[in-house]
Amino acid sequence: MRPTIGLTPLYDEEKQSFWMLPGYLEILEQCGAAPMILPLTANTEVLEACFALCDGLLLTGGQDVAPSFYGAEMQETCGAVCPSRDAMEAELLRRALAMNCPVLGVCRGLQFLNAALGGTLYQDLPTERRSTVEHHMAPPYDRAVHKVTVVADTLLSEILQKKELGVNSYHHQGISKLAPALREMAHAADGLIEAAYLPEKRFVAGVQWHPEFAFRKDPDSVKLAQAFVNACAENRQKKYCSRY
Rank of each mutant, 00 (worst) to 15 (best):
M1Q: 07
T8P: 01
P9W: 11
Y11M: 01
E14Q: 14
K15A: 14
K15I: 08
Q16I: 10
S17K: 05
W19S: 02
W19L: 06
M20R: 06
L21G: 08
G23P: 03
Y24T: 06
L25M: 07
L25T: 00
E26V: 04
C31A: 14
A33I: 10
P35I: 04
L40M: 10
T41Y: 05
A42R: 11
F51K: 01
A52V: 08
D55P: 03
L57D: 00
T60E: 05
D64R: 01
P67N: 05
S68F: 08
S68Y: 11
Y70L: 02
E73Q: 14
C78A: 15
A80I: 12
V81G: 04
C82H: 12
S84P: 00
S84E: 15
A90W: 10
L92C: 09
L92F: 12
R95A: 10
M99R: 15
V106W: 01
F112W: 10
A115H: 03
A116W: 03
A116I: 00
G118E: 13
L121G: 02
Y122A: 06
D124V: 00
P126T: 13
R129G: 01
R130M: 08
R130A: 14
E134N: 13
E134K: 13
H135R: 09
D142S: 13
R143G: 00
I159R: 04
I159D: 00
L160V: 12
K162I: 10
K163T: 14
L165C: 03
V167Q: 02
Q173K: 06
G174W: 03
S176G: 00
L178M: 09
A179G: 09
L182F: 13
I193H: 04
A195K: 07
A196K: 09
K201D: 09
F203A: 08
Q208C: 03
D218G: 11
P219Y: 13
P219E: 13
V222I: 15
K223D: 08
L224N: 01
V229L: 12
A233D: 11
N235A: 12
Q237D: 12
K238C: 13
K238A: 14
